[in-house]
Amino acid sequence: MVLGHDDDLAADATRTSNRLHGLLTSIHPALERVHRAAYAGYREAMREYVDVNVTLGASNAAQMVAGSPMQIRMQTTMMRLVNRLPWKDLAMRPIMKPLNEAANALTLAAY
């Protein structure tokens, strides 16, 4: 499910890039160089962020997908109980740490 969403985002990014490329070249063919340079800069700026998130997704995918009916019951029970536990923040900290690191891997440029 998460991987399907990523595929949709990648397809949207490709469609948007292609639409921009078409608009620029319809205005003036020399603007294609501008598009290529801008896209190359964007890819370079996003590379670390993408790498961190792809690695995190691959490492967590096996843990998120239950392999047996017993694992499904355990996951469901834990999800129901986690809000009632007095130490939920302590229990969720190791789970949330890599997610927060991945989400904050992107450094926004000051414009």
Rank of each mutant, 00 (worst) to 15 (best):
R43T: 14
A40T: 06
V34H: 03
R36M: 13
S26L: 07
Y49N: 04
R19H: 08
L31Q: 09
N18C: 02
R33C: 05
I27S: 04
N53Q: 11
A11N: 09
D51V: 05
D12M: 13
V52K: 02
A11W: 05
Y39K: 13
S26A: 15
L9V: 10
R47W: 10
H28S: 14
R19G: 01
T55P: 10
T55E: 15
R15Q: 04
A37Q: 15
D12H: 08
A37H: 13
L9R: 15
A38F: 12
L31P: 02
T55S: 14
G22Q: 03
A13S: 11
V52T: 09
P29N: 08
N53A: 07
L24E: 01
D51N: 09
A37I: 11
L20I: 03
L24V: 08
A45C: 03
Y39G: 04
G41E: 09
V52L: 06
H28P: 03
L24G: 04
D12S: 11
A40E: 07
A13V: 02
T25L: 12
A45Y: 09
T16V: 02
Y49V: 00
A30T: 04
L31V: 08
H21T: 06
L9G: 06
L9S: 11
A37R: 15
R43N: 14
I27T: 10
H35M: 11
I27A: 11
D12C: 10
P29A: 09
L20Y: 00
P29E: 04
R15K: 07
N53V: 00
R47L: 09
V34M: 01
I27H: 05
